[in-house]
Design a protein around this nucleic acid. Structure first.
Lengths: 224, 224
DNA sequence: CTAAATAGATAGTATTACTATCTTAAAATA
DNA sequence: TATTTTAAGATAGTAATACTATCTATTTAG
């Protein structure tokens, strides 16, 4: 499997691309763990600086503020899921099989084969489940959308939506269903872990497989 | 229609219940507008104090911090939707009609008949769409859940889930579907307004009706 | 070998998120 | 009516946050 892969993210997300320097990679690596440990609200550049034995100033040379750092990680995550879907869909023609693979990759976005040394995909997945929606639920969403900050997510939704339409040309809401699948995947795991009354998915090892099964049932019942 | 109604919310959400005093009601009223205007991140008690021509100190006598204020409003909103569903479900026996009414009230949670003078339900709905999920996507979610802060939401999901089970006793995921309907309702309106590539719902006057139609189609196709 | 780029060090500011205390006004009660 | 709670305003102050500016030391590239 490819190693040392780099995703091209919107250039306005960062001041200097952290993927390009060892310092930047260290920054990314520890930011994922620190977001996981503290949550978005309590996370600060000062604490991150301490973690990587550096200074606030140096971190500010890469990102304007913590919002852009989270958004960067979120975009990286979307690109990663897109990449997973792309390689797993190679040579598949049956749209039903395609959808099953897509759902598997949306829910079970775990890393059997890590792509990079500096991004722990499993911890990042956890951060996305807990904090991901905060990257685009912001007051300046329209301005940021204009600047193309959410293109990674939108392209991903389009890809899934297109396969849905291929499978079921008459279904009137492929984009709604696709975006809802992404949101559902993260929300239902969040509920399973923290608000178990809100879902049938139990917080156990198999939870990702359970959710995958539920999402397959829902998707195919709707598209049939 | 009832006027001056008061919802009983978890007592640990506030230091002093704002519904009980005219000052508190003014606080609530303007906090909704200010959350709407600034978003959660830029909202501060100092700015709110200025808005109501008061002081930070006085606001701190009602709420520990802005998180609890948002959570209070969110709980009020859930209680309100619950109330709407309850009164509109009176004397309805057919579970299919029940579900249609429920979906209408989830999506179209607007106020033809305002319940209170101090809460603008339409602006509050907008705040919930934009900021609502931040009330429970927090690092201390488990602690807060233990204290019962999310009971309003959980009860609401249970109510809807129960009707789903009544309509379709063999459907294996009523809670998942119910919680997903609530999340979908807010998300898809958010997408329609800000990220239109993510949904078929168009950002126009009829958007709530369009979404209601989509959600009915989805729900009944799944439960049939 | 020199110039440019990168990160560290230090300092400083405005704002945020509070807490403490004291005073005044209004409402409740004796 | 007098008194005592209670609610809110005023003022002050602190620690942390979210930055910006500047200067120096070290690496890296041409």
């Amino acid at each position: 499997m490819a190693h040392g892969i780099k995703f091209k993210l919107n250039e306005k997300l960062y001041i200097k691309d952290p993927q390009d320097t060892t310092y930047g990679q260290k920054l990314l690596k520890h930011s994922i763990f620190l977001f996981h440990k503290l949550g978005f609200e309590s996370f600060t550049f000062k604490k991150l600086a301490k973690e990587i034995e550096s200074t606030e100033t140096s971190i500010y040379r890469y990102f304007e503020n913590k919002h852009f750092l989270l958004l960067y990680l979120t975009c990286w995550y979307w690109e990663w899921v897109h990449y997973l879907i792309d390689i797993n869909l190679m040579n598949i023609v049956d749209p039903k099989r395609k959808l099953k693979i897509i759902i598997h990759n949306i829910v079970n976005a775990s890393a059997e084969n890590p792509l990079t040394e500096y991004i722990n995909e499993n911890v990042l997945h956890s951060v996305i489940i807990n904090e991901g929606s905060k990257a685009y639920h912001i007051h300046d969403v329209d301005k940021e959308n204009e600047k193309g900050y959410y293109l990674s997510y939108k392209r991903l939704v389009k890809k899934v939506s297109d396969v849905m339409q291929e499978f079921s040309p008459n279904f009137p809401y492929p984009k709604l269903l696709a975006s809802n699948l992404f949101e559902m995947a993260n929300n239902q795991i969040y509920f399973a872990e923290h608000l178990p009354d809100m879902t049938e998915i139990k917080n156990r090892k198999r939870k990702f497989d359970d959710l995958e099964e539920a999402m397959c049932l829902i998707t195919f019942k709707l598209l049939k």
